[in-house]
Design a protein around this nucleic acid. Structure first.
Lengths: 150, 150
DNA sequence: ATTTCATGTAACTTATGATGTGTCGAGTCT
DNA sequence: AGACTCGACACATCATAAGTTACATGAAAT
């Protein structure tokens, strides 16, 4: 089943925007993501409605970050892009007549719910600022890596 | 995104088969699941290849359980039906050139992998026998419920 | 042997939702 | 006015589980 890339893409975009002065146009972002500007607008509309980014029309317009990275968690972005279904697996029906199916659904739902809860918890615990720091450290590691040998 | 019901369906079927003497035909099972016999055969082929059920052609043929319920975990069934993708979410690419995207992917992958690990762990810890027992208890609870009042 | 019942499999269609694409309208700067 | 950018709408594409049709194969009943 095809996977939903909106969260991944938006995290990517937000981190780049934070390292870029001035607004970024949908075209620039689309080029970066290897997609279409319309897809960018469509996806980023959610972030705008949630107040994480701003968009401005006209010459010199584009997208810019509206809040510090430290105040945006991965969970926030997940929700802003629509909080899509996390699982590709699911029960066959929500309110089955068959008692056997109820037992099966209860067991599966329980396991899925717990996995979802933990995943969202973890996404909520990571801020974009932390990813940005991780990026800095990664660059630093390369600079002070085996070639320069300190 | 549409969800994959194979695991749920197969659990449902296996529990019913265990309470039913003699083989069950694809037609009977399809009727129970509200689907088509070909879908049943296609999905149950995985269970047969894994040795959890047997199939026999011809008059009086059909499907029957080949191993005790206590020896089949929900994880076993998940794998037998193809171990499909669990998440509808995913990174945009596996080996991104962009270092920012690498950081994003690492964070997302880490969270998803842990959620997956826990989910599979939990599915592996539940056997079909336990679900069958849960069903018995559910029935008992109804029989000794408010109407009969002990 | 023939009929009947059942699985095995291939090929095709359908359904669903993210993604991709083209177009036009509206706002904003030069 | 002209260049630019977002907003939106409509439609096409793609991937995959599920549904459907058709036919071959094997086994039991007659």
């Amino acid at each position: 089943m095809r996977q939903d890339n909106r969260l991944s893409r938006m995290l990517h975009v937000l981190l780049h925007m934070a390292r870029h002065d001035g607004p970024a146009t949908s075209n620039m972002i689309a080029g970066m993501l290897g997609t279409n500007p319309v897809v960018v607008r469509r996806t980023m509309a959610g972030l705008r409605d949630a107040g994480y980014v701003r968009s401005e029309k006209g010459h010199g317009g584009g997208w810019s970050i509206a809040r510090p990275l430290s105040e945006i968690s991965l969970l926030d972005v997940h929700r802003a892009v629509g909080g899509p279904h996390i699982f590709a697996l699911g029960p066959v029906s929500d309110n089955p007549d068959c008692a056997v199916e109820q037992v099966v659904n209860d067991a599966l739902d329980g396991a899925l719910r717990e996995a979802e809860r933990r995943l969202l918890e973890r996404l909520g615990a990571i801020s974009l600022a932390e990813l940005s720091t991780a990026f800095d450290e990664k660059c630093q590691a390369v600079l002070s890596g085996p070639i320069r040998d300190r």
